[in-house]
Each structure stands twice: as C-alpha cells, then as structure tokens.
Simulated assay, not measured.
Amino acid sequence: MGSLTSDSHVHGLFNALLAPLYAGSVVEFLPKFSVRGVWQRWRESYPKDGSKTNNAITLFTGVPTMYSRLLQGYDAMDSDMQVSSAFAANKLRLMMCGSSALPYPVLKRWEEVTGHRLLERYGMTEFVMALSNPLHGNRKGGTVGKPLPRVEVKIIAEESGKDGAGIGELCVRSPSLFKEYWKQPKVTEESFIDGGFFKTGDTVTIDEDGYYVILGRTNADIMKVGGYKLSALDIESVLLEHPDILEVCVLGLPDKDYGEIVCAIVVPQEQAKKRAEQELKPVMTLEELHSWSLERLAPYKIPAKLILWDSLPRNAMGKVNKKEVKKLLVG
C-alpha cells in the first residue's frame, strides 16, 4: 500500500511516516503541498474504469487547512473532473486529520464529497498520541475520541483546582510520555502534577458518550467574556458554515466592561468579494453577521467585532498563528 503525506510534525513523523514504514508500507512525499497534485495523484491511482494502479495511494493524512484547500480545489473543477476526483478519493482505505482541531463543516463537506469520515486523533510532541476516534466504529465529529490503550487521562477543573469531569485542562500519563525538557528543570517541574501526569495546556470537556472535545489552548482559544468561559474553536466552527466565509479566526480582545469581547477576523470567499465589488458594498458587516448568528449561537458567543482580512498569518504547521493575529490587532 502507499501513503501520501505532506505534514512534518509529530502527526506527520509518527503517524504518517514511522507507523507506515513499520507496517511495510511505501510512503510518498510531496516536496510542497499541492491541491492540484494531490487530486491528480488520487485520480492516477484509481482511473475512471474502476481499476487500481500498482502504486496506488491507499492512505492520506493531512491537517485541517489541507482539507479546506482540497475542497476549494474541488469546487473549482468542472463537473466531469469532480466526478472522477470524488470517485478516486472514495477508493482510498483511510484518511486521517491531525495537528489542530478540524472544523465540523469541513468534516461534513469532506464526507459528502468523498464518502470518508476523517479519522481524528489527539497528540503532542511530549507523548505522541493519547486520544483517538476508532478506526472501526463511531467517529464523532468535533471530538478526538477516547484514550488509547495504556493511556491515562484526567481533567483538572480550573474552578476548584481538583480532578473533575467537567471543563478543564487535560493531563496525560502514558508509556510514551517524555521524561523532561532538556536542561529546563523548572519548566519540567511545572509541567507535571502528582502521579506523573503531564499538563497539556489544552482545555477539554467530555461529551455524553465519553468522547473528548478539545476546546482549545488554554492561553489562546479560551475567552472569558462577561463571566462566561467560551471556546474560540467552537465559535469558529459555527461561523465557517456561513456561505461567504472562507476562513475565520476568533479571539478575545480586551474590554473594560466585559473583560474580553468576541472578535472575528474573517477571510471572505472569492465569489463574495466579487459580488460585493459589483454591488459596491462591503463583503460583510457586523450587523449582517450578528443577524445570521442569532439562530446559531448563544447571544454571548456572537462576535461583537468583525474584521475583514485577505489572509491569516500561519505558522510552519499551517495553523493560524493567533499570537501573531492578536499582536497585529492590539500590539
């Protein structure tokens, strides 16, 4: 079998490279992620006549941004190309997504186009993988599944500072957990709690089926608005359902009355930009976004500020760099 990857962090190194090689697979590298190249490689693997080439790709893994870009590429194809592309993608054995939270609208649309419900998991450099949706079984959108075998997890509730099953920081103990940060004893000591559990810095909750939901990085994605603790990722997932929004970054901006207010930095869809230019009006206004959000978000989650950008700054992993976004906005 063949595995195609263009991710180069823990998600790529362990899940997309070392694991396939250990299993005797062939891993095919892309020098640079290419939407056209990925779709073409899949179509070459599975021609329209229903055959399968000897070097066919059977597994693909990527980060959420890649799947969003692949969907954009799919939407730009003519109908015949869409049919052959969707047919080919459907023939792969497995598709995985990692490195950052996958917005539910992207998960849903990808499944509609290819028939694949992406396999989501959760891991970090410090312990590789800890949680995963099942390979065979119910893969719940918006969650990262349950603890893998021999992995122990617990939540430290911020309100009480004690173990809890509500909302709080995820802590992990597993056989693959690292020992220490090189020559940083103080940081190492602060990163562990009694019993050898590592503090991940991610805020999580557990749903009714015991699946873990990542609400975001405690210091970047959790906003405190008027007494409410809000997940930026949760709001972003809803806003991405808006037909005119291509990408969005939600973060909390300082506010003297509420502590923080919800701010949405939006990258509009190209067709929305063209339509706005023709009609000589803004692509989107805060009032329009507020009206659209009323039936989809609780009032305290609706953005109080809207900013339109052409693109969002990203790090080497392809994730939106929220620190850079906030720096550009508030210094």
Rank of each mutant, 00 (worst) to 15 (best):
S45K: 14
E189F: 10
L280Q: 14
L253P: 02
R117A: 11
S45W: 10
V35T: 15
S174L: 08
R296N: 06
L329Y: 13
G12T: 07
V225S: 01
V267A: 13
G62D: 09
V283Q: 06
K183N: 11
G161V: 07
T114R: 04
I155D: 01
S6Y: 04
I156D: 03
N219A: 14
G145P: 12
I265T: 03
V153I: 14
A232N: 01
L306T: 10
F60C: 09
S84N: 06
Y181V: 02
I222S: 00
M95A: 15
P299W: 14
L230C: 11
F192C: 08
T61Y: 09
A316Q: 01
A89H: 12
L70P: 04
L230Q: 08
V35Q: 13
A220Q: 15
I261H: 04
L177F: 04
R173T: 08
V266F: 07
A23R: 15
K281N: 13
R117T: 10
G331V: 11
D49L: 14
D234Q: 13
D75E: 03
V262T: 05
I167R: 05
V27N: 12
F178K: 02
A220L: 15
L71P: 10
M317D: 09
V225H: 00
K319F: 00
I206W: 02
A276L: 08
S191A: 15
A157T: 08
W42R: 08
G24C: 14
S45H: 12
G164F: 01
D194I: 12
F29I: 04
I206V: 15
N315T: 11
N321M: 04
A272R: 08
L306E: 05
T143P: 13
L177K: 04
N55P: 05
K179F: 03
P175G: 06
S293Y: 06
R121D: 06
H136W: 07
S3F: 11
Q269Y: 07
E279T: 07
L17A: 02
K48G: 00
A304S: 10
L239K: 02
S51P: 10
L251Q: 03
V172S: 02
P20Y: 10
M284E: 08
K229Q: 15
K91D: 04
V262R: 00
L21T: 08
I57N: 14
P147E: 09
K179I: 05
G318P: 14
T114K: 03
G62R: 11
A298N: 15
Q278Y: 03
G216A: 09
M77A: 08
V204H: 06
A276Y: 12
I245W: 01
M66E: 13
K301L: 04
S100P: 09
E152C: 03
I206E: 05
S85W: 08
G210E: 10
S176M: 13
D207F: 10
Q271E: 09
E208T: 03
C249Q: 12
G141I: 09
E169F: 02
T203S: 02
H242W: 10
I214V: 15
H242F: 11
R296I: 01
L306H: 06
M77V: 00
A19T: 14
K319E: 01
P134G: 00
I57C: 13
R150Q: 08
S160L: 08
D75Q: 11
K323Y: 06
P282W: 01
S84Y: 09
S45E: 05
K326I: 12
H11C: 09
S174D: 01
P185T: 06
P243M: 09
V128Q: 01
S6W: 10
S311Y: 02
G210K: 11
P303T: 10
